[in-house]
Design a protein around this nucleic acid. Structure first.
Lengths: 239, 239
DNA sequence: GATCCCCAATAAGTATGACTTTTGAGGCTG
DNA sequence: CAGCCTCAAAAGTCATACTTATTGGGGATC
């Protein structure tokens, strides 16, 4: 998407609108875009169509391209999530982390009901690898296994909307370790919970899978919140 | 969106792809669309851009417009949700209802933490109206209040991604009563839970708000599942 | 002076055709 | 048979002309 002319302009405008450079209610004009970016009418129009599909703007005859109120933006669109992460990483991570606390426990329960043998086996394998890499202090590989673990739970839930969130939640996980928020050796409690979840999925115990996952993500959410407020205190304000 | 030429074609193609008329991997060509719909190149290209933004297709040079694997579709896009509802209402409602069981309890807890006085008051008012209309047997107004109630909880959660789901979950609720799944006088348990949630939000009791909402939506989900399997048994198969 | 209606200016929507760029496939060469 | 090379197919971009809907204003009417 970043290659073509279209993608570049969409990305730039998307960033700008997300950042509030063009606040809701403000009006862009197709000719304005042509001039500003040195693009042809067709490209400008296609850019607007793309942004309209994300519900960032709406195009009205005799008026122009109007930026919609933020509440109407489709915040589940991966592109928009990226733009919002660039604008205010803390706020977006908080939002996503909270969504995680909602979705993952229910997804774990569903996975315990629906997962096939192969998926369950892979899940157990990932949990084991997490234990091994944690012991070895290999945070890199640990993170990979962690991301794969949670992605697999979402995929195995059998709910395509849960599965959709795999990539986004992976972002959150990567952000946590990227920030150095993870202790050098991941907490034993978290490891135990991962193993328990994997076992419950394999054994078909939705209730325990759900509560274990809930304990896990709520702990992670609390940690995320704490580090966010700490960060805000340190830098003096938002961002 | 249905007015213009663009919207019509997007809608039709969206329906077709969702329905599997063009299975993942199959290839459309811009010229093909021009011919088939009698539209110009510009409109055809904009249609493809829109579908690409929903991640239904990807456009490759020298190849054409390729339908992506279903797992990559952005199933949180309202347009795609509509198309999928038209294809297999049961499956989509099931998916959405399960998403509801995940999100709404956490949203209720967040609302109990974040809701302002005015929002809390309105929530209590809606709960009261539900009790009144239920007693009167006014299912129409009851449904409206119900939809507004759950929408307000999502909005008051302070999480814009939760708030985003208001419209979609409203669809699920409307579907339930539209199907005659609601008893003539809504269950007293559900009414009590709505009131309890409203009180907990006003009083700032996240834990009880969450568990009450969880009880409510899990009950609703079970009812939805039961009626879906009953329907499937009745009609002999899916759809 | 207020109201209503019609019209013209405006900006998006559609159509057309030419030209560019990328890339896959098949043929050519070593 | 492998690797390279050329060619053509299809999307990407551009320029321009024309159509349609909408809004705001100006003039007619009450």
């Amino acid at each position: 998407m970043s290659g073509g002319l279209h993608g570049q302009v969409v990305d730039l405008l998307g960033h700008e609108i997300s950042a509030g450079v063009h606040p809701p209610g403000s009006v862009l004009r197709i000719d304005g875009l042509e001039e500003r970016f040195g693009i042809s009418r067709s490209v400008a129009r296609e850019v607007v169509r793309t942004l309209a599909s994300i519900r960032l703007v709406v195009s009205r005859k005799r008026v122009g391209v109007v930026v919609r109120p933020r509440a109407e933006w489709n915040t589940f669109d991966p592109a928009l999530i990226r733009w919002l992460l660039a604008v205010d990483r803390s706020a977006q991570v908080r939002t996503l982390a909270e969504l995680r606390t909602a979705v993952e426990p229910v997804a774990a329960a569903a996975a315990a009901r629906n997962a096939g043998h192969e998926q369950a086996a892979r899940l157990v394998g990932l949990a084991e690898r997490m234990v091994a890499t944690a012991r070895a202090g290999d945070l890199e590989t640990f993170l990979e296994a962690d991301v794969a673990f949670h992605g697999l739970v979402l995929a195995a839930s059998g709910n395509e909307m849960f599965a959709q969130l795999e990539g986004v939640f992976g972002e959150v996980l990567r952000w946590r370790t990227g920030r150095g928020l993870m202790p050098e050796h991941p907490e034993p409690v978290a490891l135990r919970l991962h193993c328990e979840i994997a076992e419950c999925v394999r054994g078909g115990d939705p209730a325990r899978a759900e509560s274990a996952m809930r304990e896990l993500v709520e702990e992670a959410f609390a940690g995320t919140l704490a580090s966010l407020t700490a960060e805000r205190r340190a830098t003096g304000s938002a961002q």
